[in-house]
Design a protein around this nucleic acid. Structure first.
Ligand SMILES: NC(=O)c1ccc[n+]([C@@H]2O[C@H](COP(=O)([O-])OP(=O)(O)OC[C@H]3O[C@@H](n4cnc5c(N)ncnc54)[C@H](O)[C@@H]3O)[C@@H](O)[C@H]2O)c1
Ligand SMILES: NC(=O)c1ccc[n+]([C@@H]2O[C@H](COP(=O)([O-])OP(=O)(O)OC[C@H]3O[C@@H](n4cnc5c(N)ncnc54)[C@H](O)[C@@H]3O)[C@@H](O)[C@H]2O)c1
Lengths: 217, 217
DNA sequence: GTTTAATTGTTACATTATTCACAATCTATT
DNA sequence: AATAGATTGTGAATAATGTAACAATTAAAC
């Protein structure tokens, strides 16, 4: 993800704020399932590793959502966060690389809750093209531009081996994709201005754990 | 990951430094494959979205690894980073939840490069127990404590549905696990002091992309 | 209706992280 | 061996981020 500041009606803030907001939303939804109706900033941040002041400040960039002396009404705050984050309509995703990880993501049940859905999947393996995985038909790369344009798809997911990731990113952007979640462990050069790219590198995450394990002694 | 500062011989720094070091290492290895022998801080950081000063400062917490006027010898820097990050021996991982994501991770080829390997996998589904996935035999949860203790495994990966994640985390720690990479989209309360936990929440990553997509207009 | 206890929203402050800027050092060239 | 050009390593300056503290507000108790 790029690091530039971001501005709302109220002030400028870092993209980290958005990541935390979506964590709050996730936990609020879990609370709602447990039929919690009102929660204080103190209680909700106990679960996360975040201070209650941080929580209140994050929200303050967008408005006032709590009641002093009382706390936050869970269902109201969920609705407001959904508005802030843009969860008022479905966001379609195009996935490239229907291998082990790509297939897992196609079957991931955590997306719909946030109005995210993978509606198109592409691969260059003839054996996979035409098959449906979790209800999504795998198409050839040649069909990608048309499908992305027709569906107005703006989000792409890269699940191809690292050596192909850069070229797939470029083809995605060429087809109209505006933001990319990349799972291949390589740095991708943004092929155009105004394209957002976020990377998930699992080995790097583990590396950090290893470092801390290692220095305990 | 916890946010506490960390100290080396030289100074204190944030855990973010470690995450960046492992990104540098990843890209250095790619450069090595392309037979690049020497690289400057300017060049290597062009690929990543990081300033060259940041790169040099990150390294400076651990020593001097470059040659002024010249740059960094790729193979030497790789070896030094590996030492810093603890990649001098194999780190074994125990995975719980051999479903779609768990199976993908078992087959992930990006781990060995960093001396990470999943050596044990557990599930509570009778149909899965006994089968081997990517060469790792799936065992029952009951066997977990013994296997983790016998193998001296210190890293755990949680790939079970969210509602079971907390209890699996507790059982892992009970069995001797010291750090956890959690893929379930829930906040896990650390069951003991000195346990490191890192979370990968893919929906949250996408959420951030959606926010930025949404506010372009 | 006043008091009390709770909890927000926000300003001021403290801490942390990043960038700047340049002396130090290296290599190649003349 | 002196000079020029490149690039590191790092303390100081700047910017960003997080925390603390408290006035403002609410609801419930009396
Ligand atoms: N498996 C995991 O758990 C895991 C974890 C983290 C990261 N990753 C990364 O995700 C990517 C995919 O990993 P995987 O384990 O699913 O690999 P995989 O080999 O199982 O799947 C890769 C898929 O991409 C397809 N493909 C290859 N080149 C292509 C191209 N040019 N265009 C379109 N499709 C193409 C292949 O046909 C295959 O279906 C890799 O970059 C890997 O490093 C995987
Ligand atoms: N599929 C994905 O791409 C994806 C992406 C991000 C996060 N996740 C998260 O990863 C986790 C697993 O997702 P999945 O799609 O692989 O689900 P899945 O249903 O395919 O697999 C879950 C596995 O966990 C096992 N399991 C369930 N309860 C267990 C228990 N108490 N002890 C041991 N094993 C147990 C099941 O038998 C199954 O094999 C979920 O929390 C999910 O939200 C998945």
């Amino acid at each position: 993800m790029q690091k530039e500041k971001v501005c709302s009606k109220k002030k400028c803030f870092s993209p980290e704020v958005i990541k935390r907001l979506s964590l709050y939303l996730r936990d609020l939804k879990n609370l709602q399932e447990q039929e919690v109706e009102v929660i204080s900033s103190d209680e909700i941040t106990k679960m996360l590793d975040i201070s209650s002041a941080q929580f209140r400040k994050d929200l303050s960039y967008f408005g006032e959502f709590g009641k002093r002396g009382v706390g936050y009404e869970v269902s109201f705050l969920i609705r407001e966060l959904e508005k802030i984050l843009g969860i008022y309509r479905w966001w379609d995703i195009a996935l490239v690389g229907v291998g082990r990880l790509g297939s897992a993501l196609l079957g991931f049940s955590g997306f719909p809750q946030f109005k995210l859905r993978i509606t198109a999947a592409f691969d260059n393996d003839r054996k996979k093209i035409g098959k449906a995985i979790s209800g999504v038909e795998v198409k050839s790369l040649e069909e990608m531009p048309a499908v992305i344009k027709k569906g107005g798809i703006e989000i792409g997911m890269i699940c191809v081996p690292p050596q192909f990731a850069q070229s797939i990113a470029e083809r995605m952007v060429g087809a109209g994709i505006k933001s990319i979640l990349n799972f291949a462990p390589v740095s991708i050069k943004l092929p155009a201005e105004g394209i957002y790219i976020a990377n998930v590198d699992m080995a790097c995450e583990l590396q950090t754990l290893v470092y801390f394990l290692n220095r305990r002694h």
